[in-house]
Design a protein around this nucleic acid. Structure first.
Lengths: 212, 212
DNA sequence: CGCGCCCTCTAACTTTCGATGGAGGCACCC
DNA sequence: GGGTGCCTCCATCGAAAGTTAGAGGGCGCG
């Protein structure tokens, strides 16, 4: 009656408590086995390369070093790589879009009930996409309102504005001229319907386009 | 050799995964027993009132309803109440100060290693204060820099800046001249050590001087 | 191979901000 | 009464930010 080939999992999260929680929740499920944990994104990439993992549960925020999105990209870049299921606290566009672009098979929120989590892991193991309802809704809104969608570069510039940088400083950081930064921001303003950097940060934060 | 009166714990966190993780980490410790869990702040307040709890592990962010700080205040307001140990992800002043004001016995971060967590629970059970190193450092910095405190008017103006209003608009809103608004902001900038409105909003948000 | 979208850059122009250095009124406290 | 801190207002000047109206290259898609 037991499944002869259980789904083998790697937990990548810098919080020991969260790793213990995921382990506790998932190991009670039949057919799921946690075979390894990683406390940094670098470790996760290295461990995933060993070939004995079916699904990686990946956090996006790590205290130091590489982020979860980049780790996801590196893992999925290899042939025969495991599926990566992002499990994080936030559902802003600033987090979801890079993760999905990086090749994540699913995107879950940490407040999900254990059943949903286990179901998503099985879905991911089967190669199908698993999205949390809130994330799915956000993506739908994106598709419905294409005029409002900020491009990657625009989001990047706006995030630096939110950090308090001047146009000149942003230009230096991104290797752009100050004029180009202004161009990006001008487009951001029209898309968001505002007319200043502070107003742009305010509404973008409300809309979840950037995090703060 | 076993302690006849173990420390009885209540876990209050809206994430099932985190509750499972805390339970897994703490129940392996001798002398600690998790007797209840709460998924909302309201439940935590009600459950803590039953009198059979020594220490509450309280998250600050709950998806809906009451926040962890208010719940902490309500729990500690009663006589003979349990100790409240805040366990959260963030260490900004906006979170720590209200929690401490509300009567929390300690403040931990979720990335703490399990040993530290268990040690902090025992410290709290004994009635002593348990602070994560990063939080302690932050509090020390506060005490060292008393000049950073913003006046009511300055905070009011800065909050409107964070909402994206121009100096003129703020003046209209508060019945001030634009020049007065500039005066307030100039003082805010020197106090925060910045030189632009966006930078002021960024650092004030980090410091928890304004809400967003 | 166009077409559209994104990214980059330019340049001149207007408006808003921020810096500086004041000044007077008011409340509170020693 | 004389501090001290907060709030209000003033004027000027240089520095950012925002506006407008372009243009060209790259990339994917039908």
């Amino acid at each position: 009656m037991t499944d002869p080939t259980p789904v083998r999992l790697l937990l990548a999260d810098d919080h020991p408590v969260v790793r213990a929680g995921l382990r506790a929740v998932l190991e009670t499920e039949p057919g799921l086995v946690v075979v390894a944990e990683a406390a940094t994104a670098e470790d996760a990439v290295a461990r995933a390369a060993e070939g004995d993992i079916d699904v990686v549960l990946m956090d996006l925020q790590f205290g130091k070093g590489m982020g979860g999105a980049e780790a996801t990209a590196r893992i999925t870049a290899r042939a025969g790589s495991p599926r990566v299921l992002v499990v994080t606290t936030y559902d802003s566009d600033a987090d979801t879009l890079p993760a999905i672009e990086a090749g994540a098979t699913g995107y879950l929120l940490k407040d999900a009930p254990p059943e949903d989590l286990a179901a998503a892991v099985r879905t991911a193991a089967a190669g199908r996409t698993a999205l949390a309802p809130r994330v799915a809704e956000r993506l739908m809104n994106r598709l419905r309102m294409p005029g409002t969608a900020l491009t990657r570069r625009e989001t990047e510039v706006l995030a630096l504005v939110a950090d308090g940088l001047s146009n000149q400083a942003i230009g230096r950081r991104l290797h752009l001229t100050e004029g180009t930064v202004k161009s990006h921001l001008a487009r951001v303003y029209t898309k968001l319907g505002v007319d200043s950097r502070t107003a742009a940060v305010a509404t973008a934060t409300d809309l979840g386009l950037i995090r703060r």
